[in-house]
Amino acid sequence: MNDILAIIIGGIFVNNVIFIKFMGLCPYIGVAKRIDTAVGMSLGVLFVITLASTITFFINYAVLVPFNIEFMRTVTFILVIAALVQMVELVVRKLSSTLYNALGIYLPLITTNCAVLGVALLAIKNDYNFWQMLAYAVSSSLGFGLALIIFAGIRTKLDSADIPLPFRGVPIALIVASILAMAFMGFSNMVK
């Protein structure tokens, strides 16, 4: 139980996907302009990462390992993620139009979000069991969401700030990320 807690705190704070692992930066810079879009994206990512990690976990141990074709892990995982995102989009569109309106536009962007593939691969690389993998996937996406929402909040303030011209847009986003990453490093002694 203790290790699950450590993984959860690690996933959200200590090894934050964006600030420490540098994964999922495209949506961080592109999408996190307003808090409501950041929340929508975070929910989409939470759903896809959790589902993708679970499916790839079973594919890895039920297909790739028994047949000794682990070298095909990268290609299998990325295809599963791409197919999954398509399917989720279809299902969400059928099921609920409000949910589709909220998440729809973010879903295609998630395929090339390296956090999804990264979390799925790291769960295998770290030799996690099922529950550890689940905790890792959920907490990593929560960490992703936390980073996105914090940054979106800061960005609404940045809009009214007088930023020197060359720093507008991406550079200031990276510098904000730098300061936030410093803050997140303060969590590094939380897990024993």
Partner: peptide, 10 residues
């Protein structure tokens, strides 16, 4: 032996 107690994984 391996340990996953590190700061960044195994």
């Amino acid at each position: 032996l391996g340990t996953t107690q590190g700061y960044a994984g195994l």
